[in-house]
Nucleic acid binder design. Sequence first.
DNA 1: TTGACTGTCGCATTAATCGG
DNA 2: CCGATTAATGCGACAGTCAA
Length: 244
Amino acid sequence: MPEDLSDTDEARDWERLRDAADAGARTALIDRYTPLARKIAAGLYARRPDDDMPFEDYFQYGVVGLIESVDRYRPDSRASFETYATYRIRGAILNGMERTTERRDQYRHQRRLQRERLESLAEGLDERARTKLFEEMVDVTVEVALSHMLADTGMIRDPVATQEDPAYVAREVSELEQRLHAALERLPEREQLVLREHYFKQTRFESLTAVLGVTKGRVSQLHKRALQRLRETLAERQNFDGYL
DNA sequence: TTGACTGTCGCATTAATCGG
DNA sequence: CCGATTAATGCGACAGTCAA
């Protein structure tokens, strides 16, 4: 975050975000407060009960909370954004820790896969590799976002249910959720199923073989293809790089 | 006690291949 | 060409062994 961003810039960003749903303003605001998320994550990390979760994940959950904050905060509300966001960021990290404890094994496994993907790019950063790195970042982000949201809400919110359930009507759905949901909806049925089962219910590929009537090798291929499609869809619309 | 080594398990991924 | 299977591969976690 640039140090010289003035309060005026920030006020203008809030205005652009609220009035015009300006993606650039949104990213700027997220960038501006990322250090806050890092600070809160560091505080919680220092008092961590165990070593199950690496710092990057505290931070990652913090950023998710920050994004939610930016999307839901009303500039004209009484509380300052920092106060509002601090509460949410903290909550997001604590939720993340709780879920992590509950699903330790699945979590570790998932992390390994994510790490692999990024580490495979660590060497020889020429221009082509950089492009690829960005694509991989989007890919990993999609996975992290999916596991976070699907696990958190039980399911990406169903638009039909949203209309019928007053509790949901009142609740704002974040832009990222909407995008993911839209992208997910566009996937072929079987690929959707793989993602929903795998990320929401932590269903192993082996168990999906019975549901889909295919072997786990095929499930893996469907999973890979689904992520690829999601990545392409999300990359079409820009600004996804603001999420990590 | 410790830490290096080895084997095994459970999992996802991938290359090769098949069949419609 | 596309969807699917099979077999091989790779990886982390974990447990057991054994010498230092």
